[in-house]
Amino acid sequence: MAQTDNKNHQYRFSGHELVLHDVSADRVLPGLLVRLGYETVFIVCSRSINKNTAIVERITNCLGARVVGLTDKVGEHSPLGNILEAARAVRDSKADVIVSVGGGSVMDMCKAIQLCISENVYERSDLLKLQFTLSDDGTEMLTTSTAVPTIRQIAIPTTLSTSEWTPVSTPIDEQTSLKARFVVPYGAPVAIIYDPDILAQTPLRLLVSTGIRGLDHAINTACAASPHPFASLLAEQAIKLFMENLHLLGKSGNRQAYLNCQLAAWYTGMGQMSVAHGFSHWMVHIVGPYGGVPHSDASCVMMLAQAKWLEGWAVEQHGRICGMLGKEQSSFHEVLSELLSALGMPRYLQDLGLKPHQLEEMIEPALQHPMVTLNNLRPIRNETELRAILDLAWNVH
């Protein structure tokens, strides 16, 4: 049965100053820099965006001499080596703000760059000492950084995974294949620019999969072990927008679907830092690097497995969401399975190309991860229960 006595009385705002929605990034960015008092810019973007679109060229042209540096060396999951190299370049450029153009890996990289510069840390071992700690009750991630933040980022998201809404950065440590975990003071962007025409240039499958990642964040907020009423309200509206619009992306003349998905990311982001997320949010940090699959693809599978795991435990939450979607007669996991099938997204670990031995290799890192087994509405307390939920992600029957 659901735990109805766990209440969260704290709402956490991530520290943004401005969100610009339904705008053209290259038109508003020069004025935004003036408004925020920035003069010199270092651009961090993905290589695919830099090489395959005119987005970065348009932004550099509109900023002119304000641009003092650029890197597109951003690997999948933001490798620490790339972060440290870029941090030195940003430091040497003397830029006073970073403009990120890309998805979660790009924005996470910029947060870690901010941490390096503020702490004056440019070696792997020193950076890893700054990983977050947990509050005594295990529900809140606490920064270990004590330096005054010296640089911020302005984010131009090209995906829907909502990284622009958190100060958390989880880059991969190439030496261990594990995710590092940082909470960066003022790591959430000082401003976000939501340009739907830029979003529409992201390859459709990638965009949809990151939308599922954003949806998973919203579901974790709505079905949290310790929910917050404001965060739940926003999350439920985000779920509705995602589920009604993801299948419309890529359809001719459906610009509004891109706007609605960006609104869904906004609603999700405004609430997700105020509650502790559960299994599906964190297990992708194990599946991604160990299985060699993108976070967003892993989210599809973990999101569905978690919905099955919570059946009978999140009756009120699942019932409210299904009712909102006009699916009162369906279980929530059935609704999610139908969505994933319609979008052509993976539903099981086999769909990700994983083998049984890879799943076995993930058990111990998942148990050792500080968050995977915490803060779940239906508890995951030991290896037996972890294997039970992973079995739901593995079996096709």
Rank of each mutant, 00 (worst) to 15 (best):
L259Y: 00
L352Y: 01
N395S: 14
T60W: 05
Q272S: 07
H277C: 10
R12W: 05
R378T: 08
Q114L: 02
A87K: 05
E338V: 13
P167Y: 03
M273D: 12
M270A: 09
V34M: 12
V28H: 05
R205W: 06
L325K: 12
K240R: 14
E123T: 15
L128D: 13
E244L: 08
W394Q: 02
D137R: 09
S331G: 15
L390Y: 07
E334A: 08
S93H: 07
Q368T: 07
R381Q: 10
H277Q: 15
I192C: 00
T158C: 12
H16T: 04
I55Q: 10
Q237T: 09
D108C: 01
L36M: 11
V101C: 07
Y122Q: 10
L343N: 02
L18W: 13
E360Y: 04
V67Q: 07
T373K: 12
S299I: 09
T162S: 13
R320F: 05
S118I: 07
N395W: 08
G64R: 04
G81Y: 10
L130R: 01
T53P: 04
L392A: 04
I198H: 03
P229Y: 10
A25H: 09
L259V: 15
I389A: 01
N61Y: 06
E17V: 08
M371F: 10
R387F: 09
S226M: 12
T150F: 01
Q3L: 15
S163M: 14
N82S: 14
L336C: 10
E328H: 07
T150P: 00
Y348S: 09
V74W: 00
S100I: 06
L206V: 13
L349I: 13
S169I: 06
V315D: 10
S105F: 03
E140Y: 11
A87G: 13
I193Y: 00
T159S: 04
E76H: 03
A54G: 11
L374T: 10
G250S: 02
S24E: 12
S105M: 07
T210N: 00
A224C: 10
R47T: 15
P346I: 11
L336H: 03
K240V: 12
A342Q: 15
P294S: 14
G103A: 01
G37C: 04
A89C: 04
L160P: 03
W165C: 06
A2D: 14
F230E: 10
